[in-house]
Design a protein around this nucleic acid. Structure first.
Length: 475
RNA sequence: CGGGAAGUAGCACAGCUUGGUAGUGCACUAGUUUUGGGAACUAGGGGUCGCAGGUUCAAAUCCUGUCUUCCCGACCA
Protein backbone atom coordinates (compact mmCIF):
# COMPACT_ATOMS: atom_id res chain seq x y z
CA UNK A 1 0.00 0.00 0.00
CA UNK A 2 1.55 3.24 -1.18
CA UNK A 3 1.70 5.91 1.50
CA UNK A 4 -0.11 8.94 0.18
CA UNK A 5 1.24 11.20 2.87
CA UNK A 6 4.73 10.79 1.43
CA UNK A 7 5.85 12.51 -1.77
CA UNK A 8 7.75 10.00 -3.96
CA UNK A 9 11.49 10.25 -3.37
CA UNK A 10 12.38 10.56 -7.04
CA UNK A 11 9.76 13.23 -7.63
CA UNK A 12 10.86 15.75 -5.00
CA UNK A 13 13.65 14.66 -2.66
CA UNK A 14 13.41 17.63 -0.31
CA UNK A 15 9.69 17.25 0.17
CA UNK A 16 10.04 13.48 0.51
CA UNK A 17 12.51 14.02 3.34
CA UNK A 18 10.24 16.23 5.43
CA UNK A 19 7.27 13.99 4.64
CA UNK A 20 9.15 11.00 6.08
CA UNK A 21 10.09 12.98 9.20
CA UNK A 22 6.45 13.91 9.75
CA UNK A 23 4.91 10.58 8.78
CA UNK A 24 7.22 8.63 11.12
CA UNK A 25 6.50 11.19 13.86
CA UNK A 26 10.17 11.92 14.45
CA UNK A 27 9.86 15.66 14.93
CA UNK A 28 7.49 18.55 14.50
CA UNK A 29 7.91 22.26 13.99
CA UNK A 30 7.49 24.60 16.94
CA UNK A 31 6.75 28.31 17.12
CA UNK A 32 10.48 28.92 17.53
CA UNK A 33 12.15 29.19 14.15
CA UNK A 34 14.71 26.51 13.48
CA UNK A 35 14.02 24.74 16.77
CA UNK A 36 12.16 21.47 16.43
CA UNK A 37 10.20 19.39 18.89
CA UNK A 38 11.86 15.99 18.76
CA UNK A 39 8.97 13.57 19.25
CA UNK A 40 9.14 10.20 21.06
CA UNK A 41 9.94 8.23 17.88
CA UNK A 42 12.76 10.61 16.99
CA UNK A 43 14.12 10.99 20.48
CA UNK A 44 14.19 7.22 20.94
CA UNK A 45 16.60 7.02 17.99
CA UNK A 46 18.76 9.72 19.53
CA UNK A 47 18.75 7.89 22.85
CA UNK A 48 19.92 4.75 21.12
CA UNK A 49 22.65 6.70 19.34
CA UNK A 50 23.66 8.15 22.70
CA UNK A 51 23.68 4.84 24.50
CA UNK A 52 25.87 3.10 21.93
CA UNK A 53 28.32 5.96 21.48
CA UNK A 54 28.46 6.76 25.18
CA UNK A 55 29.32 3.16 25.98
CA UNK A 56 32.10 3.31 23.40
CA UNK A 57 33.47 6.58 24.80
CA UNK A 58 33.51 5.17 28.31
CA UNK A 59 35.23 2.02 27.08
CA UNK A 60 37.95 4.30 25.68
CA UNK A 61 38.30 6.15 28.98
CA UNK A 62 36.19 9.27 28.46
CA UNK A 63 33.98 10.73 31.17
CA UNK A 64 30.97 13.01 30.89
CA UNK A 65 30.69 16.54 32.23
CA UNK A 66 28.36 19.49 31.75
CA UNK A 67 29.49 23.05 31.03
CA UNK A 68 27.41 26.27 31.10
CA UNK A 69 24.94 27.23 28.42
CA UNK A 70 26.25 30.79 28.26
CA UNK A 71 29.71 31.94 27.24
CA UNK A 72 30.97 35.36 28.37
CA UNK A 73 32.02 37.54 25.47
CA UNK A 74 35.44 38.22 26.96
CA UNK A 75 36.16 34.50 27.02
CA UNK A 76 35.09 34.03 23.44
CA UNK A 77 37.25 36.92 22.31
CA UNK A 78 40.46 35.29 23.52
CA UNK A 79 40.69 33.15 20.40
CA UNK A 80 40.55 35.30 17.31
CA UNK A 81 39.96 32.63 14.69
CA UNK A 82 37.18 31.01 16.67
CA UNK A 83 35.23 34.21 17.23
CA UNK A 84 35.71 35.19 13.60
CA UNK A 85 34.62 31.80 12.36
CA UNK A 86 31.56 31.66 14.53
CA UNK A 87 30.53 35.33 14.65
CA UNK A 88 27.70 35.06 12.09
CA UNK A 89 26.11 32.17 13.96
CA UNK A 90 26.30 33.50 17.50
CA UNK A 91 23.27 34.69 19.38
CA UNK A 92 23.97 37.04 22.25
CA UNK A 93 22.07 37.12 25.48
CA UNK A 94 22.24 40.31 27.48
CA UNK A 95 19.12 40.92 29.46
CA UNK A 96 15.63 39.70 30.19
CA UNK A 97 13.36 42.51 31.26
CA UNK A 98 14.96 44.23 34.20
CA UNK A 99 17.37 41.43 34.92
CA UNK A 100 20.71 41.98 33.30
CA UNK A 101 23.55 39.56 32.87
CA UNK A 102 26.82 40.72 34.40
CA UNK A 103 28.40 40.44 30.98
CA UNK A 104 27.16 39.97 27.45
CA UNK A 105 27.10 36.23 26.81
CA UNK A 106 26.84 34.08 23.74
CA UNK A 107 24.48 31.15 23.83
CA UNK A 108 26.90 28.26 23.35
CA UNK A 109 27.48 27.25 19.76
CA UNK A 110 30.42 25.06 20.75
CA UNK A 111 32.24 24.86 24.06
CA UNK A 112 36.00 25.06 23.45
CA UNK A 113 36.15 28.34 25.34
CA UNK A 114 34.48 26.94 28.44
CA UNK A 115 36.51 23.74 28.46
CA UNK A 116 39.75 25.66 28.09
CA UNK A 117 38.74 28.02 30.86
CA UNK A 118 38.09 24.99 33.06
CA UNK A 119 41.21 23.06 32.09
CA UNK A 120 43.36 26.11 32.76
CA UNK A 121 42.42 25.87 36.42
CA UNK A 122 42.71 22.13 36.75
CA UNK A 123 45.87 21.17 34.94
CA UNK A 124 49.21 21.80 36.55
CA UNK A 125 51.37 18.77 35.88
CA UNK A 126 51.80 16.27 33.06
CA UNK A 127 50.48 13.83 35.66
CA UNK A 128 47.06 15.51 35.32
CA UNK A 129 46.97 14.56 31.67
CA UNK A 130 45.29 13.40 29.60
CA UNK A 131 41.86 14.79 30.42
CA UNK A 132 39.28 12.95 28.38
CA UNK A 133 36.02 14.84 28.83
CA UNK A 134 32.83 14.68 26.84
CA UNK A 135 29.53 16.47 27.12
CA UNK A 136 26.08 15.68 25.74
CA UNK A 137 24.18 18.91 25.30
CA UNK A 138 22.29 21.26 23.06
CA UNK A 139 23.91 24.11 21.15
CA UNK A 140 22.53 27.05 19.25
CA UNK A 141 23.75 28.45 15.97
CA UNK A 142 21.89 31.16 14.15
CA UNK A 143 21.23 29.37 10.88
CA UNK A 144 19.35 31.10 8.13
CA UNK A 145 17.76 28.17 6.40
CA UNK A 146 16.60 25.39 8.67
CA UNK A 147 15.28 21.86 8.19
CA UNK A 148 14.42 19.23 10.81
CA UNK A 149 17.52 17.29 11.96
CA UNK A 150 19.45 18.33 8.87
CA UNK A 151 20.04 21.91 9.90
CA UNK A 152 18.31 23.41 12.88
CA UNK A 153 19.30 26.35 15.01
CA UNK A 154 19.23 24.36 18.21
CA UNK A 155 20.55 20.85 17.94
CA UNK A 156 21.74 18.08 20.23
CA UNK A 157 25.21 16.65 20.07
CA UNK A 158 28.13 15.31 21.99
CA UNK A 159 31.34 17.27 22.07
CA UNK A 160 34.48 15.60 23.28
CA UNK A 161 37.23 17.88 24.57
CA UNK A 162 40.53 16.28 25.44
CA UNK A 163 43.88 17.68 26.47
CA UNK A 164 47.18 15.83 26.25
CA UNK A 165 50.80 16.20 27.23
CA UNK A 166 52.20 15.53 23.78
CA UNK A 167 51.27 16.34 20.20
CA UNK A 168 51.61 12.68 19.24
CA UNK A 169 49.10 11.58 21.82
CA UNK A 170 46.63 14.33 20.89
CA UNK A 171 46.92 13.48 17.22
CA UNK A 172 46.41 9.84 18.05
CA UNK A 173 43.25 10.79 19.93
CA UNK A 174 42.00 12.87 17.00
CA UNK A 175 42.45 9.91 14.69
CA UNK A 176 41.06 7.37 17.14
CA UNK A 177 37.80 9.31 17.61
CA UNK A 178 37.40 9.68 13.87
CA UNK A 179 37.70 5.92 13.71
CA UNK A 180 34.94 5.64 16.33
CA UNK A 181 32.63 7.77 14.19
CA UNK A 182 33.49 5.72 11.13
CA UNK A 183 32.86 2.49 13.02
CA UNK A 184 29.54 3.84 14.27
CA UNK A 185 28.33 4.83 10.83
CA UNK A 186 29.44 1.63 9.14
CA UNK A 187 28.56 -0.89 11.82
CA UNK A 188 25.55 0.67 13.52
CA UNK A 189 23.92 3.05 11.05
CA UNK A 190 24.79 0.93 7.98
CA UNK A 191 26.08 4.08 6.30
CA UNK A 192 29.33 3.58 4.34
CA UNK A 193 30.82 6.96 5.11
CA UNK A 194 34.24 8.04 3.93
CA UNK A 195 36.75 9.83 6.09
CA UNK A 196 39.62 12.18 5.44
CA UNK A 197 41.11 15.55 6.22
CA UNK A 198 39.39 18.86 5.47
CA UNK A 199 41.23 21.41 3.35
CA UNK A 200 42.45 24.64 4.99
CA UNK A 201 39.42 26.43 3.58
CA UNK A 202 36.93 23.96 5.02
CA UNK A 203 38.52 23.13 8.38
CA UNK A 204 37.09 24.19 11.74
CA UNK A 205 37.86 27.79 12.73
CA UNK A 206 41.01 27.70 14.82
CA UNK A 207 41.98 24.06 14.24
CA UNK A 208 45.35 22.83 13.03
CA UNK A 209 43.41 20.32 11.00
CA UNK A 210 39.98 18.71 10.88
CA UNK A 211 39.14 15.10 10.16
CA UNK A 212 35.67 14.51 8.80
CA UNK A 213 33.16 11.79 8.25
CA UNK A 214 31.23 12.27 4.99
CA UNK A 215 28.06 10.42 4.04
CA UNK A 216 26.50 10.25 0.60
CA UNK A 217 22.75 10.69 0.50
CA UNK A 218 20.41 8.83 -1.85
CA UNK A 219 20.25 11.85 -4.16
CA UNK A 220 24.03 12.20 -4.39
CA UNK A 221 24.33 15.14 -2.02
CA UNK A 222 27.05 14.90 0.66
CA UNK A 223 26.55 15.28 4.37
CA UNK A 224 29.21 15.98 6.98
CA UNK A 225 28.31 13.78 9.90
CA UNK A 226 30.97 13.72 12.59
CA UNK A 227 34.23 15.64 12.86
CA UNK A 228 37.39 15.35 14.89
CA UNK A 229 39.69 18.35 15.26
CA UNK A 230 43.33 18.62 16.21
CA UNK A 231 44.07 22.04 17.70
CA UNK A 232 47.70 21.51 18.63
CA UNK A 233 48.58 24.26 21.11
CA UNK A 234 46.53 26.99 19.45
CA UNK A 235 43.72 27.05 21.95
CA UNK A 236 45.86 26.30 24.96
CA UNK A 237 48.02 29.32 24.09
CA UNK A 238 44.97 31.54 23.66
CA UNK A 239 43.48 30.33 26.95
CA UNK A 240 46.69 29.74 28.83
CA UNK A 241 46.25 26.01 29.43
CA UNK A 242 49.70 25.07 30.69
CA UNK A 243 51.26 22.17 32.54
CA UNK A 244 54.67 21.34 33.93
CA UNK A 245 56.31 18.60 31.88
CA UNK A 246 58.71 15.86 32.96
CA UNK A 247 61.67 18.21 32.50
CA UNK A 248 60.06 20.65 34.97
CA UNK A 249 59.34 23.11 32.15
CA UNK A 250 56.05 24.89 31.38
CA UNK A 251 54.39 23.63 28.26
CA UNK A 252 51.08 24.39 26.57
CA UNK A 253 48.70 21.44 26.42
CA UNK A 254 47.67 19.71 23.20
CA UNK A 255 43.97 19.88 22.58
CA UNK A 256 41.40 17.94 20.54
CA UNK A 257 37.67 18.11 20.07
CA UNK A 258 35.25 15.85 18.27
CA UNK A 259 31.50 15.84 17.80
CA UNK A 260 28.52 14.12 16.34
CA UNK A 261 24.99 15.53 16.22
CA UNK A 262 21.31 14.76 15.76
CA UNK A 263 22.06 15.26 12.09
CA UNK A 264 22.88 11.54 12.10
CA UNK A 265 19.12 11.01 12.11
CA UNK A 266 18.86 13.01 8.88
CA UNK A 267 21.56 10.77 7.41
CA UNK A 268 19.71 7.59 8.37
CA UNK A 269 16.62 8.91 6.60
CA UNK A 270 18.34 10.13 3.46
CA UNK A 271 20.39 6.96 3.06
CA UNK A 272 17.86 4.26 3.98
CA UNK A 273 14.25 5.51 3.91
CA UNK A 274 11.99 4.93 0.93
CA UNK A 275 8.59 5.91 -0.49
CA UNK A 276 6.86 3.93 2.24
CA UNK A 277 8.53 5.85 5.04
CA UNK A 278 11.41 5.38 7.43
CA UNK A 279 13.65 2.30 7.28
CA UNK A 280 15.78 1.79 10.37
CA UNK A 281 18.87 -0.38 10.48
CA UNK A 282 18.17 -2.99 13.21
CA UNK A 283 21.11 -1.94 15.37
CA UNK A 284 19.80 1.61 15.76
CA UNK A 285 16.07 0.82 15.79
CA UNK A 286 14.54 1.56 19.22
CA UNK A 287 11.95 -1.09 18.44
CA UNK A 288 13.37 -3.86 16.32
CA UNK A 289 10.33 -6.11 16.11
CA UNK A 290 6.58 -5.49 16.20
CA UNK A 291 4.22 -8.38 16.77
CA UNK A 292 0.77 -7.89 15.29
CA UNK A 293 -2.11 -10.12 16.35
CA UNK A 294 -4.82 -10.74 13.73
CA UNK A 295 -8.22 -12.03 14.78
CA UNK A 296 -10.08 -10.60 17.73
CA UNK A 297 -10.37 -12.39 21.05
CA UNK A 298 -8.50 -15.38 19.76
CA UNK A 299 -6.80 -17.02 22.71
CA UNK A 300 -4.31 -18.93 20.62
CA UNK A 301 -3.22 -15.77 18.80
CA UNK A 302 -2.83 -13.73 21.98
CA UNK A 303 -0.98 -16.50 23.71
CA UNK A 304 1.52 -16.88 20.89
CA UNK A 305 2.05 -13.11 20.64
CA UNK A 306 2.83 -12.88 24.33
CA UNK A 307 5.11 -15.89 24.17
CA UNK A 308 7.09 -14.39 21.28
CA UNK A 309 7.33 -11.07 23.03
CA UNK A 310 8.62 -12.66 26.19
CA UNK A 311 11.18 -14.84 24.45
CA UNK A 312 12.51 -12.09 22.21
CA UNK A 313 12.73 -9.56 25.03
CA UNK A 314 14.63 -12.07 27.14
CA UNK A 315 17.39 -12.25 24.53
CA UNK A 316 17.70 -8.48 24.31
CA UNK A 317 15.64 -7.85 21.21
CA UNK A 318 13.49 -4.71 21.52
CA UNK A 319 9.97 -5.74 20.61
CA UNK A 320 6.35 -5.06 21.43
CA UNK A 321 2.90 -6.42 20.68
CA UNK A 322 0.59 -3.98 18.94
CA UNK A 323 -2.62 -4.54 20.89
CA UNK A 324 -4.30 -1.31 19.81
CA UNK A 325 -7.87 -1.31 18.51
CA UNK A 326 -6.73 -0.48 14.98
CA UNK A 327 -7.26 -2.83 12.07
CA UNK A 328 -4.41 -5.12 11.06
CA UNK A 329 -3.94 -3.16 7.84
CA UNK A 330 -3.47 0.03 9.82
CA UNK A 331 -0.92 -1.62 12.07
CA UNK A 332 1.06 -2.91 9.09
CA UNK A 333 1.11 0.52 7.52
CA UNK A 334 2.10 2.22 10.77
CA UNK A 335 4.94 -0.23 11.46
CA UNK A 336 6.11 0.37 7.93
CA UNK A 337 6.10 4.16 8.03
CA UNK A 338 7.92 4.01 11.39
CA UNK A 339 10.65 1.86 9.89
CA UNK A 340 10.47 -1.05 12.32
CA UNK A 341 12.87 -3.63 10.85
CA UNK A 342 10.83 -6.81 11.44
CA UNK A 343 7.10 -7.39 11.66
CA UNK A 344 5.68 -10.65 12.95
CA UNK A 345 2.05 -11.23 11.98
CA UNK A 346 0.28 -13.81 14.12
CA UNK A 347 -3.07 -14.59 12.48
CA UNK A 348 -5.82 -17.05 13.30
CA UNK A 349 -6.02 -18.23 9.69
CA UNK A 350 -2.25 -18.81 9.52
CA UNK A 351 -2.29 -20.71 12.78
CA UNK A 352 -4.67 -23.28 11.32
CA UNK A 353 -1.88 -24.06 8.86
CA UNK A 354 0.64 -23.87 11.72
CA UNK A 355 2.44 -20.87 10.27
CA UNK A 356 3.02 -17.21 11.03
CA UNK A 357 4.00 -14.44 8.62
CA UNK A 358 7.20 -12.44 9.04
CA UNK A 359 7.83 -9.29 7.03
CA UNK A 360 11.09 -7.40 6.72
CA UNK A 361 10.84 -3.63 6.33
CA UNK A 362 13.88 -3.04 4.14
CA UNK A 363 12.75 -5.22 1.22
CA UNK A 364 9.07 -5.39 2.23
CA UNK A 365 9.31 -9.13 1.67
CA UNK A 366 6.86 -11.44 3.48
CA UNK A 367 7.87 -14.91 4.63
CA UNK A 368 5.78 -17.78 5.92
CA UNK A 369 7.39 -19.36 8.96
CA UNK A 370 6.43 -22.65 10.65
CA UNK A 371 5.14 -22.14 14.19
CA UNK A 372 7.60 -24.82 15.33
CA UNK A 373 10.53 -22.61 14.28
CA UNK A 374 12.70 -21.20 17.07
CA UNK A 375 11.57 -17.59 16.82
CA UNK A 376 14.52 -16.18 18.74
CA UNK A 377 17.17 -17.67 16.46
CA UNK A 378 15.12 -16.89 13.40
CA UNK A 379 14.59 -13.23 14.35
CA UNK A 380 18.17 -12.70 15.46
CA UNK A 381 19.47 -14.00 12.15
CA UNK A 382 16.94 -11.99 10.19
CA UNK A 383 17.90 -8.77 11.99
CA UNK A 384 21.56 -9.41 11.22
CA UNK A 385 20.72 -10.14 7.58
CA UNK A 386 18.74 -6.91 7.30
CA UNK A 387 21.57 -4.92 8.86
CA UNK A 388 24.06 -6.42 6.43
CA UNK A 389 21.82 -6.08 3.39
CA UNK A 390 21.07 -2.45 4.17
CA UNK A 391 24.78 -1.74 4.44
CA UNK A 392 25.54 -3.59 1.20
CA UNK A 393 22.85 -1.71 -0.67
CA UNK A 394 24.15 1.60 0.68
CA UNK A 395 27.67 0.68 -0.44
CA UNK A 396 26.37 -0.24 -3.87
CA UNK A 397 24.56 3.07 -4.23
CA UNK A 398 27.53 5.04 -2.95
CA UNK A 399 29.82 3.34 -5.44
CA UNK A 400 27.34 3.97 -8.22
CA UNK A 401 27.46 7.66 -7.35
CA UNK A 402 31.24 7.81 -7.07
CA UNK A 403 33.01 9.41 -10.04
CA UNK A 404 36.42 10.49 -11.23
CA UNK A 405 37.09 13.85 -12.81
CA UNK A 406 40.24 14.64 -14.76
CA UNK A 407 39.41 18.19 -15.75
CA UNK A 408 36.84 20.90 -15.14
CA UNK A 409 34.67 19.73 -18.04
CA UNK A 410 34.37 16.30 -16.40
CA UNK A 411 33.45 17.93 -13.15
CA UNK A 412 30.82 20.12 -14.71
CA UNK A 413 29.32 17.23 -16.62
CA UNK A 414 29.02 15.07 -13.51
CA UNK A 415 27.55 17.86 -11.40
CA UNK A 416 25.03 18.73 -14.06
CA UNK A 417 23.77 15.19 -14.51
CA UNK A 418 24.10 13.29 -11.24
CA UNK A 419 26.13 14.62 -8.32
CA UNK A 420 27.96 12.30 -5.94
CA UNK A 421 31.45 11.77 -4.53
CA UNK A 422 33.80 13.10 -7.18
CA UNK A 423 37.41 12.01 -6.94
CA UNK A 424 39.89 14.45 -8.47
CA UNK A 425 43.43 15.67 -7.97
CA UNK A 426 44.15 19.12 -6.58
CA UNK A 427 47.20 21.36 -6.49
CA UNK A 428 46.47 22.69 -2.99
CA UNK A 429 45.74 26.23 -4.13
CA UNK A 430 42.64 27.78 -2.59
CA UNK A 431 41.94 29.65 -5.81
CA UNK A 432 41.16 26.33 -7.49
CA UNK A 433 38.72 25.41 -4.70
CA UNK A 434 37.00 28.73 -5.18
CA UNK A 435 36.85 28.22 -8.93
CA UNK A 436 35.36 24.73 -8.54
CA UNK A 437 32.78 26.05 -6.11
CA UNK A 438 31.37 28.13 -8.94
CA UNK A 439 30.08 24.89 -10.42
CA UNK A 440 26.83 24.32 -8.56
CA UNK A 441 28.49 25.16 -5.23
CA UNK A 442 30.67 22.05 -5.35
CA UNK A 443 33.11 21.95 -2.43
CA UNK A 444 35.99 19.81 -1.34
CA UNK A 445 34.67 17.17 1.06
CA UNK A 446 37.97 15.77 2.22
CA UNK A 447 41.50 14.94 1.28
CA UNK A 448 41.82 11.19 0.97
CA UNK A 449 44.59 9.97 3.29
CA UNK A 450 47.02 7.81 1.33
CA UNK A 451 44.80 8.34 -1.70
CA UNK A 452 46.07 6.89 -4.93
CA UNK A 453 47.25 9.27 -7.59
CA UNK A 454 44.62 9.59 -10.32
CA UNK A 455 46.47 12.25 -12.34
CA UNK A 456 49.67 14.24 -12.18
CA UNK A 457 47.83 17.48 -12.70
CA UNK A 458 45.30 19.53 -10.76
CA UNK A 459 41.77 19.06 -12.04
CA UNK A 460 41.33 22.82 -12.17
CA UNK A 461 44.53 24.68 -13.07
CA UNK A 462 46.59 21.85 -14.57
CA UNK A 463 49.57 22.54 -12.33
CA UNK A 464 51.26 19.78 -10.38
CA UNK A 465 48.73 17.95 -8.16
CA UNK A 466 49.44 17.40 -4.49
CA UNK A 467 46.26 15.90 -3.10
CA UNK A 468 43.63 13.33 -3.96
CA UNK A 469 40.41 15.09 -2.97
CA UNK A 470 36.77 14.05 -2.87
CA UNK A 471 34.44 16.80 -4.01
CA UNK A 472 30.69 17.16 -3.87
CA UNK A 473 27.61 19.21 -3.24
CA UNK A 474 26.83 19.48 0.44
CA UNK A 475 23.84 19.94 2.66
C1' C B 1 20.01 38.08 3.85
C1' G B 2 18.35 38.03 -1.85
C1' G B 3 14.43 35.48 -5.36
C1' G B 4 9.74 32.56 -5.40
C1' A B 5 5.32 30.09 -2.96
C1' A B 6 2.10 29.41 1.16
C1' G B 7 -0.41 30.27 6.16
C1' U B 8 -8.60 29.03 7.20
C1' A B 9 -10.42 22.73 12.84
C1' G B 10 -5.05 17.92 14.53
C1' C B 11 -3.93 17.19 8.82
C1' A B 12 -5.03 18.29 3.48
C1' C B 13 -7.70 21.94 1.24
C1' A B 14 -12.27 25.05 -0.73
C1' G B 15 -14.26 29.92 0.15
C1' C B 16 -11.20 35.56 -1.27
C1' U B 17 -11.73 37.90 -7.86
C1' U B 18 -17.27 40.75 -6.82
C1' G B 19 -16.88 42.14 1.74
C1' G B 20 -22.83 40.05 4.42
C1' U B 21 -24.57 33.22 9.39
C1' A B 22 -17.31 29.24 8.81
C1' G B 23 -17.28 24.80 4.73
C1' U B 24 -15.56 19.72 2.63
C1' G B 25 -12.53 15.19 3.20
C1' C B 26 -9.50 12.60 6.62
C1' A B 27 -8.54 12.51 11.88
C1' C B 28 -11.16 12.93 16.87
C1' U B 29 -15.50 11.39 20.64
C1' A B 30 -19.76 7.84 21.77
C1' G B 31 -22.38 3.47 20.33
C1' U B 32 -23.00 -0.89 17.25
C1' U B 33 -21.04 -4.26 13.80
C1' U B 34 -16.07 -5.47 12.29
C1' U B 35 -10.51 -7.20 11.86
C1' G B 36 -5.00 -11.00 6.66
C1' G B 37 -2.50 -3.91 3.71
C1' G B 38 -4.51 2.48 6.54
C1' A B 39 -12.86 -0.95 8.36
C1' A B 40 -18.51 0.42 8.01
C1' C B 41 -22.82 2.81 9.75
C1' U B 42 -25.30 6.27 13.10
C1' A B 43 -24.87 10.37 16.30
C1' G B 44 -21.55 14.20 18.07
C1' G B 45 -17.46 17.75 19.35
C1' G B 46 -13.94 21.15 17.57
C1' G B 47 -11.89 27.16 14.06
C1' U B 48 -10.95 35.08 17.73
C1' C B 49 -9.57 32.28 9.27
C1' G B 50 -0.85 33.15 11.46
C1' C B 51 -0.40 37.86 14.27
C1' A B 52 -0.96 43.39 14.58
C1' G B 53 -2.91 47.69 12.60
C1' G B 54 -6.13 50.18 8.91
C1' U B 55 -10.59 50.94 5.45
C1' U B 56 -15.99 49.80 6.18
C1' C B 57 -22.47 49.71 8.99
C1' A B 58 -19.95 44.95 8.19
C1' A B 59 -13.36 41.83 6.80
C1' A B 60 -11.29 34.92 6.04
C1' U B 61 -12.24 38.21 1.74
C1' C B 62 -9.69 44.91 0.48
C1' C B 63 -4.95 47.81 2.23
C1' U B 64 -0.27 48.15 5.29
C1' G B 65 3.10 45.89 8.41
C1' U B 66 4.95 41.66 10.79
C1' C B 67 5.97 36.45 12.04
C1' U B 68 6.40 31.43 10.48
C1' U B 69 6.95 27.34 7.02
C1' C B 70 8.56 25.33 2.20
C1' C B 71 11.63 25.73 -2.39
C1' C B 72 16.12 28.08 -4.97
C1' G B 73 20.81 30.91 -3.75
C1' A B 74 24.71 32.79 0.03
C1' C B 75 26.32 30.59 5.43
C1' C B 76 26.79 26.14 8.27
C1' A B 77 27.20 20.07 12.02
Amino acid sequence: MKNEAITPRDEDFAKWYTDVVRAAKLADYTSVKGCIAIEPNGYAIWEKIQSIMDAKFKELGHVNVQMPFLIPESLFNQEKELIEGFAPELLWATEAGERKLEERCAIRSTSETLFCDYYKKHITSYKDLPKLYNQWCNVFRYEKETRPFLRSREFLWQEGHTVHATAEEAEWETKRMMDVYKWFNHEILAIPSITGKKTEKEKFAGAEYTLTNEDLMYNGVCLQDGTSHYFGQKFSKAYDVKFTNKDNKDEYAYYTTWGKTTRAIAAIIMVHADDYGLVLPPRIAPKQVVIIPIGKDNEKVDELCNKYQEELTKTGIDCYVDNSEKSPGFKFAEAEVNGIPVRIEVGARDLEKNIITVARRDTREKMEVEVSTDIVTYTKELLETIQKDMYDRAVERRDKLTFEAHNLEDMEKILNTQPGFIHAMWCGDEACETRIKEIKGCKSRCIVEDGEKIDDKCVCCGKEAKYHVIWGIQY
